[in-house]
Design a binder for these strands. Structure first.
Length: 270
DNA sequence: CCGACAACCTGACGGC
DNA sequence: TGCCGTCAGGTTGTCG
């Protein structure tokens, strides 16, 4: 369940046990996830001190005092486990810090990734270089959306999933934000007025912040081996709720586009 | 540029 | 109990 709020809460949880700590050991239990692990991962991390944790879109950043940053992506099913009671087949990368804590990157589907770059180079790293603004940052405004969407005839649903337009939204939060903003998912991106874009920006911020708030409880679950759906799942307005009531009283519908489900309410989303 | 689709993987769930 | 089809939070690439 890793979207931006999950990555954010994961990073905060890792910071609590890693920040300022020395990396005592690194063990890769397989050679790759989505792509191969960096060959010198263990050598460059071991002995280094974690100076800061961070996040860019759905990527987590672990920065060391040696001038390196480890960049991880959780894919569809990845999560970090803190002090797991035992390691299973999907615990692929283990990091031990000198305070005694063990961190395990667990990813059954293995769509995640781990990269290691000089910290000075991460802005130029291709996945980051092409990215749009952070949805919770100062550059994500209705004006920006208006420019980025100008002339686009694709649906706003698909455009919001494009990380070049805004970086960090996934299927759940796009559905939720469009519902909150009262915008139909199939509406052409370039044909949404500034007023409604302002509402959309506000809705995206609101839903992400609420999810991060609730994600705190998810994170506590992460510290246990059995972490399931986060608390914020209980707050979904439309996602996963086909046939149930939208907050407006309408019935939530589901449609498929690009092989992915879109949940929406035809009554209040126009 | 656009939409559809497939690929990468495993696990959960429903139907029979 | 088990087998089979379907679906799942993401990203990347191809094809018409």
């Amino acid at each position: 369940m890793p979207e931006l709020p999950e990555v954010e809460t994961t990073v905060r949880g890792l910071a609590a046990v890693m920040e300022g700590k020395r990396i005592a050991g690194v063990e890769a239990r397989r050679a790759d996830l989505r792509r191969p692990f960096p060959e010198d991962l263990r050598q460059r991390l071991t002995g280094a001190t974690v100076s800061a944790l961070g996040r860019r879109a759905k990527y987590g950043l672990i920065e060391t005092d040696r001038g390196d940053t480890m960049i991880f992506h959780l894919g569809m099913s990845g999560r970090w486990r803190i002090d797991p009671e035992e390691l299973g087949t999907h615990d692929h990368l283990i990091v031990g810090v000198d305070s005694g804590h063990i961190l395990s990157l667990n990813d059954p589907r293995r769509f995640g990734s781990v990269d290691l770059l000089p910290t000075d180079d991460i802005d130029a790293w291709p996945p980051f270089a092409a990215m749009g603004p952070e949805p919770l940052g100062p550059d994500f405004t209705a004006r920006h959306l208006q420019q980025a969407l100008a002339g686009r005839i694709a649906s706003i649903k698909l455009l919001l999933l494009d990380q070049r337009i805004v970086a960090g939204l996934g299927n759940i939060y796009v559905c939720e934000a469009l519902n909150m903003a009262g915008i139909a998912p199939g509406r052409q991106g370039g044909r949404i007025g500034l007023k409604r874009l302002e509402r959309l920006v506000e809705a995206i911020r609101t839903v992400l912040l609420a999810a991060i708030d609730a994600g705190g409880s998810t994170l506590r679950d992460y510290a246990r081996p059995d972490g399931e759906l986060g608390y914020f799942a209980k707050q979904w307005r439309v996602y996963g709720r086909e046939g149930l009531e939208c907050p407006c009283g309408g019935i939530v519908r589901r449609r498929t586009e690009g092989g992915r489900s879109t949940f929406y309410c035809a009554d209040c989303q126009r």
